[in-house]
Design a protein around this nucleic acid. Structure first.
Lengths: 184, 184
DNA sequence: CGCACCATGTAATGCGTTACATGATTTT
DNA sequence: AAAATCATGTAACGCATTACATGGTGCG
């Protein structure tokens, strides 16, 4: 899957692994993330099977850069993946919900500590989607007017994140009340 | 993580790998899932490090069963994990949202096919949380009155699922409208 | 003086999936 | 007659994480 994210970004313009990581961190990271080491490995594999080419650019002060460019084959791969409908739900892995499921014998105070901490984290994430993400998207749309359609879709993914975090916070509030109620 | 789910279920009562898979499929599967093969591997590892013990039970008609029982050490491991607060957000991996992010150059009809199919899937899942899950939880609570507190937490995780799927469907509706609007 | 940033990679390990292998009983 | 259920496991592969390894520049 990481494969297609890299192709997706490189379909806009050539970039290094390091830059790709930065772009991911400021956009897709909330619905798909990766470590730098894995990015380098995947880029190498993509070059081997002909989806990318790379050139080394020497730099005076800084370490050399390896700049990757998408090939027509890479573009075809990307397009094929994008057009192929997802036939299943994305499997979820939600650690907090899982823990709660098995927490009946845990001290209610310990459960509440869990829930309140996560409430704080999700609230921060919600603020990020509300206050930071829109600026990033707006900036890109302003800088590159030809990306208007792209920006509209990025905005749709941002709204997904915002709704999701708002839901999470409201569910935590309701669940905190439930557990608090078990004292009385 | 699978490790703790198995310990969590075995903390109620001994069971075979096959039974654990069934329990997972009728409860945690929507926020944590696993394949049978991986369950067998993990059970073996848990026995090796002393969290579980197992006995082989011969059966006349059916294949032999290996029944796992949690040890005090396993209970301690489980408790320690449950009590340890989650300091980070669970990383999300949402393929559909990811695809949408990169779909600007895709034929709008292809995007809509994606979105409508997923709407159908999430709507089914929503119906499951509304109509099927409550019965499973109610059944367990009726059969074992001492699990009242457990059932209250299971119900909380069910509500999370229901809210999540409702959100997903409503986001898809709004996103379908957005993409449809791009024709005019 | 230490930390963050730039920039790339390898090695070891862990976790998960898919495919393979077996085989009787029960349901459709 | 075919498919599902019961029941366990191994082997190969893929993907991801963590730790290791290097080293210069710029900022506080």
């Amino acid at each position: 899957m990481l494969k297609y994210i890299l192709l997706g970004f490189l379909n806009y313009q050539p970039a290094t692994g390091y830059e790709l990581k930065q772009r991911m961190d400021s956009s897709t990271t909330h619905f798909w993330h990766a470590k730098l080491s894995q990015i380098y490995i995947t880029l190498k594999a993509l070059e081997e099977d002909g989806s990318l080419t790379s050139t080394l650019e020497a730099q005076a002060d800084r370490p050399d850069k390896r700049i990757y460019t998408i090939t027509p084959q890479g573009q075809a791969d990307l397009h094929q993946w994008l057009a192929q409908p997802e036939m299943a739900l994305s499997p979820k892995k939600e650690t907090l919900v899982l823990k709660l499921f098995f927490s009946a014998q845990l001290d209610p105070q310990a459960i509440l500590t869990q829930l309140r901490l996560q409430r704080e984290l999700h609230n921060q994430q919600l603020a990020y989607y509300r206050d930071v993400s829109p600026q990033i998207i707006q900036q890109a749309a302003d800088d590159f007017p030809m990306l208007a359609k792209d920006a509209a879709l990025w905005e749709a993914t941002r709204r997904f994140g915002e709704k999701y975090e708002a839901l999470y916070v409201s569910w935590l509030d309701e669940t905190i009340q439930l557990v608090e109620g078990q004292f009385h």
